[in-house]
Design a protein around this nucleic acid. Structure first.
Length: 680
RNA sequence: GGCAAUGUAGCUCAGUCGGUUAGAGCACAGCAUUCAUAAUGCUGGUGUCGGUGGUUCGAAUCCACCCAUUGCUACCA
């Protein structure tokens, strides 16, 4: 096996909130890979850092009344602790707000400039005049220009899904100050991405990416790349662009460079060769583990930047999907938005590592953490199957044979069969097909238990406790267990460490799967892992509800008035144009083929001819009312509204109702009002 | 709206270069066992493989359309 030299990075979490279970999926995936390769004897450097720049951090710090530097250092320590708790074994956990990153970002930028890959031009953006800062789309809300839905973000409408520019919003307002944003021009710096289209098309199809990821990128590549805006105006927490006072690098410019910076710091600490991992033409490997939400940054912008700046491109990018809990998006109200720290308080992190591993493949599919399935699977596989093998064999060895394994094994074929699977399992790990590896390992655990059940050492021990056969069988069982633990060590490093102590062996490496313990003295067995207590799961969900539900409420005030602010002022004559009348609903019926409409016949009272004036109105109130309950009721209609042809007929007016789209309430006069009376 | 991914037993997932009665683990039922953290073994039923139509001697697997879920739609973080 040729030794590999690999630099592995994990996506940089944003230094603006705690690590949750969704984050952990990607980190645990990468960590398992790193641990596996290290066990095989390869050289792996594993780096990460906090992503510490941007408007979000600036505003959070302000809100907390501290400096951004204070905020990000506090969060960094917390993040690093969470990762350690989940046994994610980084060589360094740094920050993008570092001197190394400032220098590297400036360097890369200057190389881009020299290569004529930077353009500048003035663009118009919305500006918060109160706070004096430019507003990105997520900080602007207003009415959708297409469907008129209220309270939509500046980039797209969640109701009608149309996309638009923030400047197109009706009645836009800053979510930071509430002020009405004004358009303002400013010079921005752009990375000329389109000139790399051909290179990227080749690179994305060169085997560095999973096919489904390459397909995703093809959407952008075929649709035509745009120049990428890499500057932000002050005030902005980040690095100022060299020779451009008041202009800062956009956080996503310096975030991936943070991988380099973090590694550079590690190099200076450990005397490693930075260039051996980053220079063009190097033979070492560079792997990025990321979530599928940031594919474009890593597989489009980043390789283009690296190439232009004279660095190597990534060997591969491994993409993971999102985590769902109980089949749904993580939700604060359901208690499934679980923080790493909350989980850690109640449950063993290795349970989660195993569960993720058992369901992870190399593809970027979403992964569901079904808490009931989690409990059953962990208990059955780890406690019932795996640990049980040691538990049922160790007693005999401890009690009757002075902790000594026999010089012989009872079933050499079985052991050798276990050993022969090492390569296949290794292949699965290497390909990040952990689910396949776990299935295979658990199949072997089943075989081990079945074999012990067949040999019945307890029956032999009853007749003759000191029987050599008993020692051989149990020694074989413990050897099988040892092999399984070697195979599981990348996933369960803490369990493996306990087993190393129990078996009194040096830290297990992959190569150790070729050997067998004979004539070897072990320690006394103590329970290695306990079952998942369902009460703990309930406690986690309860804690997740209370800790997060509350803080969330404070941040966002939700009321009809907030969702839909009062419209622009009008004069009385404008109001007087609307002629509203009391009506009696003479008849109401369902409309065949209509999802939302009811057909109403409204009685306006007697007309000049002495006959009742009747109007037909189609009203979208089907979801809230049954026709029968409406008949005979009083209501209010707009009587002078121009008739409108609808799919199901003419609608001659509108009936007044209050509603937010979900609930609907008809307006009704108090009892005694007469049909035809004007409402003013 | 466009694009993409996903949709296989109660649950979580394998499985498709088209080919015998569609698989695993868990759950469930019965039996056995009691060395082991009530752990283990054996046996057993379970599915219109999202829907409709097509190609084919033959389709979970290929094609078309549709439905559902999720995501993306880069000058958001």
């Amino acid at each position: 096996m040729t030794p590999r030299d690999i630099l592995v990075t994990n996506a940089l979490p944003y230094a603006n909130g705690p690590i949750h279970l969704g984050h952990l999926l990607g980190y645990i995936q990468a960590d398992i890979w790193v641990r596996f390769l290290r066990m095989q004897g390869h050289t792996v450097h594993y780096v990460c850092a906090d992503d510490a720049h941007g408007t979000g951090i600036m505003l959070s710090a302000e809100k907390a009344g501290i400096t951004p530097e204070q905020l990000i250092e506090g969060v960094r320590v917390e993040h690093h602790r969470d990762f350690k708790d989940f046994l994610v074994d980084f060589d360094i956990y740094y920050s993008t707000h570092s001197e190394e990153n400032r220098e590297l970002s400036a360097y890369v930028y200057q190389r881009l400039q020299q290569a004529d890959a930077i353009a500048t031009r003035s663009i118009t953006q919305l500006f918060d005049p109160e706070r004096e800062l430019f507003l990105s789309d997520r900080f602007i809300k207003g009415q959708c220009p297409k469907c008129k839905a209220e309270n939509q973000y500046g980039d797209n409408c969640e109701v009608c899904a149309s996309t638009y520019a923030a400047t197109d919003l009706i009645n836009p307002r800053s979510t930071i100050s509430g002020a009405t944003p004004v358009p303002k021009d400013s010079v921005h710096y752009f990375f000329k991405l389109p000139q790399f289209t051909a290179m990227l098309k080749d690179w994305t199809r060169s085997g560095t990416l999973a096919p489904s990821v390459a397909n995703k990128l093809a959407e952008w590549l075929d649709g035509g790349l745009q120049e990428w805006d890499i500057s932000r105006d002050a005030p902005y927490f980040g690095f100022e662009i060299p020779d451009a006072p008041g202009k800062y690098f956009y956080v996503w410019l310096d975030a991936p460079i943070g991988y380099m910076a973090s590694f550079k710091k590690l190099c200076s600490e450990k005397g490693l060769d930075f260039g051996a991992y980053w220079n063009e033409g190097t033979t070492t490997e560079l792997w990025h583990f990321i979530g599928k939400d940031i594919i474009n940054f890593h597989a489009l912008f980043w390789p283009a930047m690296l190439t232009t700046a004279g660095f190597r491109k990534p060997t591969s990018i491994s993409v993971n999907g999102f985590l769902t809990v109980n089949g749904q998006k993580m939700s604060k109200s359901r208690g499934t938005f679980i923080m790493a720290a909350t989980y850690k308080e109640h449950l063993n992190p290795e349970y989660l590592r195993y569960y993720f591993a058992s369901k992870l493949g190399s593809n970027p599919d979403d992964l569901d953490l079904n808490l009931e399935d989690f409990t059953l699977r962990v208990n059955a596989d780890l406690v019932g199957k795996l640990v049980n093998i040691a538990s049922r064999c160790a007693g005999f060895i401890n009690r009757s044979f002075a902790n000594k394994l026999s010089p012989l094994v009872a079933e050499a074929d079985l052991i050798s069969n276990f050993q022969q699977h090492a390569n296949e399992i290794a292949e699965h790990y290497n390909n990040r097909e952990y689910g396949k590896a776990m299935r295979l390992i658990m199949k072997l655990a089943d075989d081990a238990n079945a074999w012990i059940a067949e040999k019945q050492p307890w029956v032999l021990a009853k007749a003759q406790p000191q029987s050599e056969a008993v020692q051989n069988i149990c020694s074989t069982g413990l050897n099988l267990f040892r092999l399984l633990v070697i195979y599981l060590k990348p996933v369960l490093p803490a369990l493996a460490a306990q087993v190393e102590t129990f078996l009194q062996v040096a830290p297990l490496r992959w190569q150790d799967s070729t050997t067998v313990l004979r004539d070897h003295t072990i320690g006394v067995f103590t329970p290695l892992m306990t079952r998942v207590d369902p009460d703990k799961i309930a406690a986690i969900m309860e804690a997740s509800k209370s800790s997060l539900g509350a803080s969330e409420e404070v941040a966002v005030i939700d009321s009809p008035l907030v969702r839909e602010p009062i419209a622009a002022e009008i004069e009385f004559p404008d109001f007087a144009k609307v002629d509203m009348r009391v009506v009696k609903i003479q008849h109401a019926e369902h409309v065949a083929g209509a999802d939302k409409l009811l057909k109403l016949t409204l009685d306006l009272g007697l007309g000049t001819d002495g006959k009742p004036v009747l109007r037909t109105v189609f009203s979208g109130i089907k979801s809230a009312y049954e026709p029968e309950q409406l008949i005979g009721q009083l209501a209010v209609m707009v009587a002078n509204l121009k008739a409108r042809k609808m799919k199901f007929g003419m609608s001659e007016g509108m009936i007044l109702a209050a509603g937010d789209g979900k609930e609907i309430f008809l307006m009704a006069p108090h009892a005694g009002a007469h049909p035809g009376t004007r409402v003013t």
